[in-house]
Amino acid sequence: MNDTKSRIDQACRVAEDFTKLYYDTLDKRRHIINKLYLETGVLSWNGNGVIGSKKIVKFLMDLPGTDHTITTLDSQPILDSAVNGQTTLMIQVTGTVKYQDKSPKTFQQNFIVTAQGDKWKTVSDCFRLQEPLTPKN
Results as ranks from 00 to 15, higher is better:
Thr122Lys: 03
Glu131Ile: 10
Gln100Met: 09
Thr66Asp: 02
Asp80Val: 06
Thr72Gln: 12
Phe18Ala: 02
Glu39His: 05
Asn34Lys: 15
Thr69Lys: 13
Asn46Pro: 07
Gly65Ile: 14
Gln76His: 09
Gln130Ser: 04
Ile70Glu: 03
Thr25Phe: 09
Lys20Leu: 07
Asn2Gly: 03
Pro135Cys: 06
Leu38Ile: 08
Leu60Ala: 09
Ile56Ser: 05
Thr69Arg: 13
Thr66Ile: 10
Arg13Ile: 11
Asp80Glu: 09
Met1Pro: 00
Cys12Pro: 05
Tyr99Asp: 01
Lys55Ile: 03
Ile32Pro: 00
Leu129Lys: 11
Asp27Ala: 08
Cys126Tyr: 07
Phe127Pro: 00
Val83Cys: 10
Val83Glu: 12
Ala82Gln: 14
Thr88Cys: 10
Val57Asn: 01
Lys105Glu: 01
Phe59Tyr: 12
Ile70Trp: 02
Thr114Glu: 13
Glu39Gln: 11
Thr71Arg: 14
Thr94Gly: 02
Val113Trp: 01
Ile112Phe: 06
Pro77Asp: 08
Gly47His: 07
Gly95Pro: 14
Leu60His: 04
Asn46Met: 09
Ala11Tyr: 01
Val97Pro: 00
Val113Cys: 01
Val123Ala: 04
Lys35Pro: 05
Lys54Phe: 14
Ile78Glu: 00
Arg128Tyr: 04
Lys35Trp: 04
Ile32Thr: 13
Lys119Asp: 14
Thr96Gln: 04
Gly95Ile: 04
Thr87Leu: 10
Leu43Ser: 13
Leu89Thr: 04
Gln76Pro: 01
Asp9Lys: 13
Asn46Thr: 02
Met61Thr: 14
Thr25Lys: 03
Met90Lys: 02
Asn110Lys: 02
Thr72Asp: 14
Gln109Thr: 05
Ser6Glu: 15
Asp3Pro: 00
Ser53Phe: 09
Asp101Cys: 08
Leu133Asp: 12
Trp45Thr: 01
Ile78Tyr: 01
Lys55Leu: 08
Asp101Ala: 13
Gly52Ile: 06
Asn84His: 13
Gln130Phe: 02
Asp101Trp: 03
Val83Trp: 02
Thr66Phe: 09
Pro135Thr: 12
Ser103Glu: 10
Val14Ile: 07
Gln109Glu: 07
Thr66Tyr: 09
Gly47Met: 06
Arg13Met: 09
Val83Ser: 12
Val14Phe: 01
Asp17Trp: 05
Thr114Asp: 09
Trp120Val: 10
Ile56Arg: 15
Ser6Met: 09
Asn110Arg: 00
Asp125His: 01
Leu79His: 08
Gln10Val: 08
Ala15Ser: 08
Met1Gly: 14
Ile70Val: 15
Lys58Arg: 07
Thr122Val: 13
Val50Cys: 06
Asp3Phe: 15
Gln100Cys: 14
Trp120Gly: 07
Asn48Val: 15
Pro104Ala: 06
Gln100Arg: 00
